[in-house]
Design a protein around this nucleic acid. Sequence first.
DNA 1: CGCTCATTTGACGCATGTCAACGCGCGTGG
DNA 2: CCACGCGCGTTGACATGCGTCAAATGAGCG
Lengths: 246, 246
Amino acid sequence: MEFPGSRPTALRLVPRGGLCARCGVRTVAACAALEDWELERLEAITTSTTFEDGQTVFEQGDDPRYIFNLTEGAIRLLKLLPNGRRQVVGFVFPGDMLGLSSHGAYTCSAEAIGKVGVCRFPRAKLLSLLDEFPNLKTRLLDIAADELSEAQEQMLLLGRKSPAEKLASFLWRLHRDGSRCGGSENRIDLAMSRTDIADYLGLTIETVSRTFTRLRNDGVIRLDGAAHVVIEDEDALEELAEAMAD
Amino acid sequence: MEFPGSRPTALRLVPRGGLCARCGVRTVAACAALEDWELERLEAITTSTTFEDGQTVFEQGDDPRYIFNLTEGAIRLLKLLPNGRRQVVGFVFPGDMLGLSSHGAYTCSAEAIGKVGVCRFPRAKLLSLLDEFPNLKTRLLDIAADELSEAQEQMLLLGRKSPAEKLASFLWRLHRDGSRCGGSENRIDLAMSRTDIADYLGLTIETVSRTFTRLRNDGVIRLDGAAHVVIEDEDALEELAEAMAD
DNA sequence: CGCTCATTTGACGCATGTCAACGCGCGTGG
DNA sequence: CCACGCGCGTTGACATGCGTCAAATGAGCG
């Protein structure tokens, strides 16, 4: 798969006619379910915005005024606990929706990882568009079901996997999702820090670091700087990660 | 809240006119979004079934032919790993939907806890009803968003909470959801075994047991047999459970 | 070229898992 | 009705893997 628009060289998302039609994530995002004329209606309520590294897109508990679609960069979704304890509940990549909340409040916070570009839809307006475009509502239901499935997979990871299995699963998923998450072929470009990975996998950064080293020593991966992973033994990585039920 | 129909004394769900209208979970389930005439259409594709303790309602990976609505009893949703490792990804109580899967396969298995009664809808037929009843589709979207929010909360629990906080959070949620999950006032009736609780919280049964004992010794709860918990110090339980972000 | 911060590595302790024995409630059968 | 046995839950002793604290290394950037 190729997502030309998700690279830095993509057309800038400026607010003018054709915005959506020329959007790089057009074919993967929720809007893929829309006809051209529907897209124009959506475009009318869309604002494109950017965020700098570390900036907050929205905060847990806030009134969910907007729903977003990530067009460029990466975002971490997280929840906080006292003691500075953090749990990253997901990473968002180009084409993914975020901000689909339930009861009048964002259920987690969203922070930019590096420079980020998003499409922003006023929640109320998007929801009323849903009544006009049943396809879009169906698409959102599909997306929600997918995210639920991923969430269950993550619960299995957090509750029952060893650190090595956790890290292998994480890398395997990034590899599987391919270039959208950075990297190509057997190369994975990690947008997030060791701290983010640790808080995603329910580990400490030290354990994450040691586990990277262990996978390297076992010949499963190679590290080309901390942010670039090359998969050396795809079968071994899959076995560690996918350890499926008997 | 009262759910008279969810008690064993409820009207039997036999396939005859009025089935849904007289259903005990009518007001909480997804069908709450439906008009009477819509309900009749739904009823036409509904089959009511029962399962005995431990029976499998559906298995992870199976073709998701049916979507279910639990009317009576409780169900555990789980995923398996080699070594007999298990992760319970959720408990289902009367009024909840299950089997809303994504890509052509159930994402987890569902097993009856005790005797269980369900409404069963052929997936394809229910999905086509969705196109006729936009309200129902919206309701399912809301349900999916709620479940996603709960899933994120559970990731926080699994990744970053101590055993005492995990158990307190679990009890607090059951308490909050009230009689639907068993129990009343400050009494919680646990439908599930220590093994199920352990596999839900990412702990061993020994740690769960010791943590129950510790909460009892600290005067937070009282145990009336293993399956009945009485909350003695509601504030203490909430503080342990809700430990919200600063 | 040197500073700063992220990452890695090392030493150590403790919380939780593991292994094992015990108790108790419940169902069954005499 | 009582005795027995089985399975679940509890408690105890011990081990170990991961977290904690601390220092070293190295990459990125001015």
